[in-house]
């Protein structure tokens, strides 16, 4: 999946807005990007549009069905939850939390994983041996077990949740990065650089990193969805984002006891979650095709 960027780049630059054209060329990518932009906008400016304070409770109005009647007590387009909070406002605020979790986990996990993977692949020897044993140990560890213990020790909070997810997610990046580096380090230009006496740091930054980035970016984009879903699963076990933070996974988990009596509690945050995961997956798919010159047009249907 390596990238021979030069040629493809030259080809693309002949027309204006090449990236935009590439996106618009593929209908799934268009949908994915539009959704993702919508979510980012929602996180950025949505809170000023939310009709209610997402944590404000009105016990007398709990479990009200969706209503569009105007007036502060009535306008709940997605209904109210078990504490009488406005679900619409919570869904809007929740986009911040979900995007925050998704991106921070993927970025921090990616940085750690790439660091370990590149070091293992480049230096080989004992560095690689130790790194790969650590990776093995992680892979042999049921995720739930690790998450439960870490939360039990550190306590439940948004930061700790991100920590747990990043802590378990880095392994994938490490394996992929190592694999890529192993195949790259014997390439002529890398070997040449080494022969010419370039320092390891320089080789890593100048030659290896740019070449494995596309693969890592694709992997990361595809993992964002999984991370958001995983955070929701932890909420099911009572380990997710603590109350009263409006987090989709938590809202979904709290709403599960009301699915038969007040369907709107779990449905709207669930829908938001599905759409977000959908959009990052579509964007990830497109990125993979776009960054891989051999596959131009392959996934464009």
């Amino acid at each position: 999946m390596g990238l021979a960027g030069a040629e493809a780049g030259v080809l693309r630059r002949r027309r204006r807005f090449p990236v935009l054209r590439a996106i618009l060329h593929s209908r799934p990518a268009t949908v994915g990007w539009l959704l993702l932009i919508a979510f980012v906008l929602m996180a950025a400016i949505g809170p000023s549009l939310a009709p209610h304070d997402p944590t404000q409770q009105q016990l007398l109005l709990r479990l009200r069905a969706p209503s569009f009647r105007l007036g502060a007590d009535h306008f709940h387009p997605m209904g109210t939850d078990q504490l009488g909070r406005d679900i619409f406002s919570r869904v809007i605020y929740g986009s911040r939390i979900s995007l925050l979790i998704g991106f921070t986990v993927v970025i921090s996990g990616g940085v750690i994983g790439c660091g370990v993977g590149i070091a293992a692949g480049y230096f080989r020897g004992w560095v690689e041996r130790i790194a790969m044993r650590v990776v093995d140990i992680y892979l042999a560890f049921p995720f739930i077990l690790l998450a439960l213990i870490v939360i039990a020790v550190l306590g439940a909070s948004l930061t700790n949740l991100i920590l747990v997810l990043a802590f378990t997610g880095w392994v994938n990046y490490a394996r992929v990065a190592r694999g890529e580096v192993l195949s790259l380090r014997e390439r002529e230009y890398v070997v040449a650089a080494r022969v010419m006496g370039a320092r390891s740091g320089r080789i890593l930054v100048r030659h290896l990193l740019p070449n494995i980035m596309p693969t890592i970016i694709v992997l990361a984009s595809l993992q964002i969805g999984g991370v958001v879903i995983q955070a929701g699963a932890l909420s099911f076990l009572g380990l997710g984002v603590p109350p009263p933070t409006p987090d989709w996974g938590r809202m979904l988990a709290e709403g599960r006891d009301y699915m038969a009596t007040a369907w709107w509690l779990a449905t709207f945050p669930g829908l938001a979650l599905v759409l977000l995961v959908l959009s990052v997956n579509l964007v990830g798919d497109w990125l993979r095709d776009y960054l891989d010159p051999q596959r131009q047009g392959g996934g464009g249907s």
């Binding site: 039990a152 306590g155 439940a156 603590p242």
Partner: peptide, 9 residues
């Protein structure tokens, strides 16, 4: 400030 934790904690 509600601080939720597992029962063991």
């Amino acid at each position: 400030k509600v601080s939720a934790m597992p029962f063991s904690t």
